[in-house]
Computed example of a mutant assay.
Amino acid sequence: MRRRDVVFGLGCVAALAGAETLRPRRLLSLAGGRKITTMVPTKFAGWAAEGGGDIVLPKVPGSLADTLYNETVARTYRNTDGGAPIMLLIAHGDSQSDLLQLHRPEVCYQAVGFAITEHRFDPVALAPGITVPSVELTARAGGRVEDMLYWTRLGEYLPTTAGEQRRDRLAAAMDGYVADGVLVRVSMVREGEQADWARLNAFVAAMMKGTPNNGRVALVGTERAKALAGATRIV
């Protein structure tokens, strides 16, 4: 056997061993098999979901959304202050692998004809000293201007870009597991000249305060859920 063939064979064995090392052997789901729709309140701090519950989203078997997400929560909330309503979308997938990944709004909105005119990273405050890395976007199509903020959770990670999402998915695989993922988006159709980011942030903070701890874990991870539980006990 030639030396070159031996070296090539050893390289193949090493590659196979590496692939086997990276093969996830367990699933990690912070939702714990519970339905997110039952954990996120329909009423809190002057806000109430229109119709008292979720918007019906037809699920087409075999579609991309059907493949990516085990559960989708869609609601429109109005406040007693009479201001602009806020739309909430939460998408949860049990398994975030190379083929099944959360789709980020800046990509999805452009795919249906919106132009992204603002895109920035700005942590959303859940309570004093407790923030979640989030993305703020403004999407325009015709006369419609929609301002939104969102974050994604992949296992215990909170990636803000597609690159970070790939990095965190690889880190999870190297630790031997496939993590679940969630995308939380709140948005508002702009009524004036300026975006009201403060209203969106206040909505998120109120929603998280009214959500039970198991729901907080599913939405923002264990560490922030614990911190928020401590903060709400103090208040």
Rank of each mutant, 00 (worst) to 15 (best):
Phe8His: 08
Ala125Phe: 03
Val217Arg: 06
Gln101Glu: 02
Leu99Met: 13
Arg4Thr: 08
Ala125Arg: 15
Pro133Cys: 02
Arg199Ala: 02
Phe44Glu: 03
Ala19Asn: 03
Arg190Val: 06
Met39His: 07
Thr161Val: 06
Ala173His: 14
Glu71Ala: 10
Trp197Met: 01
Gln96Trp: 02
Gly62Asp: 00
Thr80Val: 09
Leu10Phe: 07
Ala171Trp: 07
Ala65Gln: 10
Arg104Ala: 12
Glu146Pro: 07
Val40Ala: 08
Leu102Met: 10
Leu170Ser: 09
Asp180Tyr: 09
Ala195Asn: 04
Ala91Arg: 14
Gly9Ala: 09
Phe114Asn: 01
Ala91Pro: 08
Ala91Ser: 15
Glu20His: 04
Ala227Thr: 05
Gly18Met: 06
Gly163Tyr: 13
Met207His: 07
Val124Cys: 01
Ala65Arg: 12
Ala111Val: 12
Pro61Gly: 00
Pro61Met: 09
Pro212Ile: 00
Arg23Met: 02
Thr42Ala: 14
Ala31Trp: 08
Thr211Ser: 03
Arg153Trp: 12
Leu158Arg: 10
Glu146Ser: 13
Gly230Cys: 01
Arg199Lys: 09
Val7Arg: 15
Glu164Asp: 07
Ser63Trp: 00
Glu223Trp: 05
Ala202Lys: 07
Ala231Gly: 01
Gly113Ala: 03
Leu64Gly: 04
Trp151Leu: 00
Leu158Asn: 15
Leu89Glu: 09
Val184Leu: 02
Ala206Lys: 03
Leu28Phe: 00
Ala31Lys: 03
Arg140Leu: 05
Val40His: 02
Gly181Gln: 01
Ala31Glu: 08
Glu106Ser: 00
Asp98Phe: 07
Thr152Ile: 03
Asp122Thr: 15
Met148Asn: 06
Thr131Gln: 14
Glu50Leu: 15
Arg190Lys: 04
Gly210Ile: 03
Ala19Met: 08
Pro61Ile: 08
Gln110Asn: 08
Ala173Trp: 14
Leu219Ile: 02
Ala65Ser: 10
Asp168Tyr: 15
Ala91Tyr: 11
Arg185Ala: 10
Ser134Gln: 05
Gly181Asn: 03
Asp94Ala: 13
Gly9Thr: 01
Glu50Thr: 11
Gly93Leu: 04
